[in-house]
Write a protein that binds this DNA or RNA. Sequence first.
DNA 1: CTAAGACTTCAACCACACTTGAAGTCAAGA
DNA 2: TCTTGACTTCAAGTGTGGTTGAAGTCTTAG
Lengths: 155, 155
Amino acid sequence: MTETPPPIWLTVGELAARTGVAASALRFYEDRGLIGARRTDSGHRRYPRSMARRVAFILFAQRIGLSLEEIRAELQKLPVGRAPSGEEWAQLSATWSDRLDQRVAELQRLKRGLTDCIGCGCLSLERCAILNPSDQARALGAGPRYWLGDSPPSD
Amino acid sequence: MTETPPPIWLTVGELAARTGVAASALRFYEDRGLIGARRTDSGHRRYPRSMARRVAFILFAQRIGLSLEEIRAELQKLPVGRAPSGEEWAQLSATWSDRLDQRVAELQRLKRGLTDCIGCGCLSLERCAILNPSDQARALGAGPRYWLGDSPPSD
DNA sequence: CTAAGACTTCAACCACACTTGAAGTCAAGA
DNA sequence: TCTTGACTTCAAGTGTGGTTGAAGTCTTAG
């Protein structure tokens, strides 16, 4: 029985290895309040194994298009002091479905524009429903700040 | 007949007004080689009206998820010295359809993961097909640089 | 003619999501 | 014990896509 049992508390390097997220990123997430860690007497971080799931959730939420600040706000809804249940994780992301639907709709609108719009001259702007959607589509690329339909800081 | 005829050459402010893109952004695009301009004797920019379409194309391409550098490369395929035809614009974007399909597929995968994956523990990473897609999905949010499946600079 | 507003360049700044490096401490195997 | 590698903090740097400001020039309406 010389097999090493799976460690209960993970170092930052171990958590990095398990999640694929760089240790520097994990420290950064802590700095931004997305994750936390116990500390050893000497100051080294120690994570419970459930933390890997929290990190995975962060990555998932990023893919959805949330900023770290938004993710932080979401994570605050979770219980403190114990690992969240599967259901609690699922509840957290329940509202994202609409967001994804909107994104898919925009992409499909863009795809139609590929044939309908670019060639025909609709690209004359101003009333193009493809280039001028109502949603913000933040995570779909930065784009110029003041696009048609977005209001500049104080117009 | 005191009506002002539509100007043949646009100033940067006029092009900004027509496209909804800030003048500073237009200068920035010029700096990056995406657009060009004639100059008056005094150095002021003058754009042909067809430039509005080029700018619209840039915005469109950004929505698709292309970086400015990628867009620059695309635009280099266009003829110089004359305004491109509608067909030429359409050809340029013909290959984007696949890209959009992939993005839509990823979003739908993410949406399924909302119910299938987050709650069930699949979020344990490493083999999660949702968090570990083969494409890069660059425009879907930055995310940590070294995600599972991406190779660090030299592993 | 003159004043306002639009234009010019250039450098600096912004947000986001990290990475990198310096300087030092801690932990674990030989 | 020693040495190596992993850890610590903090500051500074990176890339993308711009914006903002300073200092000066040009254009145009009155």
